[in-house]
Every structure is written in C-alpha cells, then in structure tokens.
C-alpha cells in the first residue's frame, strides 16, 4: 500500500498542467514597536516570495525559525492578510474572493496544524470534530454523516468506535490522525500542513508520514508541506523551497536539492543535519549584522563578496534547472 511514488525528473515539471496554486510577490511586514520619539521599524517576515504548486504535487517549504515559512502557510489559508502580492488558486484571485464564492472555494483548501494538542477542542467528541467541516459545507442526513465520519477515521488508521470519545483519551499521534481526518473530510485539492509531525515521537512520526504518503498516493491531493526538518521534507516532497529570513533562496526538485544544493545556505542546512557527516561552514547567525541592503545571508556566508552586501540577489534559474538566489552561483 505504501509503494514509493515514482518520482518524475525535475524537468518534467515545466510542461505540467496549469498550477493549482500560484503565489506571486508575497510580502508580509510586521511593525516593530517604535522607540520614544523614534521611527517605528518594520520586520519583513516574508519578502517577495513567489512559487507555484501543481496538481498532485507536494511542495516543501523549509527554513529555520523566523524564516517566514509558517507566515506563508497562514497567508495561503487567509488566516493573516499579506502586505502585498497575490495568490491565485485554480486560476482565481484567492485573496479577493468573498462571501459565498470564498466559502465554496475554501473547502478545497484545508490545513493540518503542528500541535495535535492545541488544534482539537477538548470538549468535543471525535465524531463532532471530524464532522464539523462536513456540517459546515454540506448538509447530509445524520446516518450518512455518521458513515462518512467512520470512513474517514478508518482512512487515517483509527477504529470507527473511537468516534464517541474525547481528545484527551488519545496519544499525540492519534490526535494528529484525527486532525488529518478532519482536514481531508471535504476532499480538498490542497492541504497546507504546517510542521505536522514535529510534535511527535520518532516512531509515531513515521506512522504519520506513511499516512500522508498514502493519502497522497490515493487521491489527487496537492500539498504545501512546511517543516524545519529536512529529512522529513526529502521523504515526502516533489520540490522544495528553502527560506532564509523571509526570502526564497533556492527552489528545486527534491533530488537535485539534496544531491547538489546550489545556495550556500542550503548547503549549510544540509551539513548541519546531525549524522550527515559534514561540517557546517556557516558562521553563527547574528541579529546585529543583517544589512538593510544586499543578500540577507551575506553576513554568515563564507563566499560573500562585494555585490552580496549591496544588491539583493534575485531568484534565477541555474544550469541544473533549480532556481537559486545567489550572486556567486556557478562560481562556488
């Protein structure tokens, strides 16, 4: 049942059908509290990020804390409003839709959250938690609703008899299964999963990864998979975007990213994975030394030269088919 999905060569993506989700120039600024008599500053949490997700494709977004990966997920879910940029979902302006139109489209995009403890209402029965999206978006007779819930629980590897219990009676892994059952209840086209396995133990993490892999293989689901854990992303994603301080620094097919990382930051991230057998060449991140201009990574980068400190590098195609935002790509 869990046979590995055959992975397409990276180039095959170029002639794939129109994108399900397309994000262009996404920006989110947060205002810093102003000092006395001083001017309030601005933190660019997400800065000019563009990417797209094809039908049945899983795109991974990786980065360290503060890189803006969760903010992007939340903007796609319309939980927070972007400062600038647009999002097209299935060709429609996703941010402009409202009312009934938005309600109808909304069911096609669902989310799995990080904490299986905070994301389920402790006072609700499992049946009600899983049925809520169905009740909101479809009016089904009670018997059919019950069958649908039972089917969903089975699909995520839980016994339908658990429907009458409450969340506290379940382990973290089981709760995450419930969260996934709820997210796939409306058969969405896009699942936004924000660190769905980070709060789980290693052996349970593998169960949830296998479940997501299985759901992916069975349906026509696309996924935005947000994680700080590169090995999990390598396992589940077709393409991967690497974020650093709110900017995409590399976007490439999973295979090429892990075998031939192009951006110095991607290389540092891979080398930092314990057990990778490599030494991390990046210097310590420092909050002070980030320049207003130039590449945000320049202060840590062992390859930084003059243009790196003055001109922001754009995300450009490199020889290998990957998109890389580095002035020195090809030289290093």
């Amino acid at each position: 049942m869990l046979s590995p999905v055959p992975s397409l060569p990276d180039q095959a993506r170029t002639e794939s059908p129109p994108d399900l989700l397309s994000v262009k120039g996404l920006v989110k600024h947060y205002a810093l509290p102003g000092r006395w008599f001083g001017r309030a500053g601005v933190i660019p949490a997400v800065d000019d990020v563009s990417f797209s997700i094809g039908s049945r494709e899983t795109l991974g977004l990786v980065g360290e804390s503060g890189s803006g990966k969760s903010t992007i997920g939340r903007m796609i879910m319309r939980l927070i409003r972007p400062t600038a940029g647009n999002i097209l979902f299935d060709g429609q302006d996703w941010l402009a839709s409202s009312g009934e139109e938005f309600r109808r489209a909304r069911r096609r995009v669902q989310m799995v959250f990080q904490s299986p403890y905070a994301s389920l209402d402790p006072r609700w029965r499992i049946a009600d938690i899983v049925a809520e999206p169905l009740r909101t978006h479809q009016s089904l007779p009670a018997a059919e609703l019950r069958d649908r819930v039972a089917g969903l629980l089975q699909a995520v590897g839980l016994d339908p008899s658990v429907a009458d219990r409450h969340p506290h009676q379940f382990s973290g892994g089981q709760r995450q299964r419930i969260g996934i059952a709820r997210a796939i209840a409306l058969e969405p086209d896009l699942l936004v999963a924000d660190e769905p396995v980070s709060a789980l133990d290693v052996s349970v993490q593998a169960q949830i990864l296998a479940l997501l892999q299985d759901i992916k293989a069975r349906g026509r689901l696309s996924m935005l998979f947000i994680s700080h854990d590169l090995s999990v992303v390598a396992y589940l994603c077709d393409r991967v975007g690497v974020l650093y301080r709110g900017r995409l620094v590399e976007l490439a097919g999973t295979r090429s990213l892990f075998h031939a990382p192009g951006h110095p930051y991607t290389r540092a991230l891979l080398a930092a994975i314990p057990g990778s057998g490599q030494r991390c060449e990046a210097s310590a991140p420092s909050s002070a030394a980030v320049s207003e201009t130039g590449c945000a990574y320049a202060s840590r980068c062992p390859h930084a030269r003059e243009p790196c400190r003055t001109i922001v590098p754009a995300l450009r195609p490199s020889g290998s088919g990957a998109l890389i935002a580095c002035h020195r790509v090809g030289e290093i």
Binding site: P4, A206, L209, S231, A234, Y235, L236, F258, I273
Partner: peptide
C-alpha cells in the same frame, strides 16, 4: 528505520 534519511530519500 522510522527516520527518513536524506542520503536515501527513496
């Protein structure tokens, strides 16, 4: 065996 490996993602 539970950990995906970056050196052998397949």
């Amino acid at each position: 065996a539970s950990r995906p490996s970056i050196t052998a993602p397949d």
